[in-house]
């Protein structure tokens, strides 16, 4: 089997993570924010799987499964919140929810 440079996998994960992060930072639409979060979680999962391949051990994949579970639960709750928010404020603009300012 041909080899794959270990750090390239990790760098890909880092770039994907950063893409998600910039989405979180710049977006005002809460649906996009949630999607960006998914990208970040997925990037973490990728890093774990790469690590798993690097050390030839399955624990990294187990960790990926856990992240998957977490993402599923988080998306369910997050979408529920978005729907509730849209019902109450008739917008998906996250800036509207700024009542908790000092």
């Amino acid at each position: 089997m041909p080899s794959i440079p270990y750090e390239h996998g990790l760098i890909l994960a880092a770039i994907l993570f950063v893409c998600g992060l910039i989405g979180v930072l710049t977006r005002r639409n809460i649906v996009f924010v949630l999607m960006s979060l998914e990208i970040m979680l997925n990037a973490c999962g990728l890093a774990f799987v790469v690590g798993s391949a690097r050390w030839g051990h399955a624990d990294g994949q187990i960790m990926f499964l856990m992240i998957l579970t977490l993402a599923a639960a988080e998306v369910a709750v997050g979408l529920g919140l978005i729907i509730q928010m849209y019902r109450r404020f008739h917008t998906v603009d996250i800036s509207v929810l700024s009542e908790m300012k000092g």
């Binding site: 979180v24 930072l25 710049t26 005002r28 924010v33 996250i94 800036s95 929810l97 700024s98 009542e99 908790m100 300012k101 000092g102």
Partner: peptide, 10 residues
């Protein structure tokens, strides 16, 4: 310090 608490998620 209150100034830092804008209420904006971003």
């Amino acid at each position: 310090l209150v100034l830092t608490q804008t209420g904006y998620l971003r």
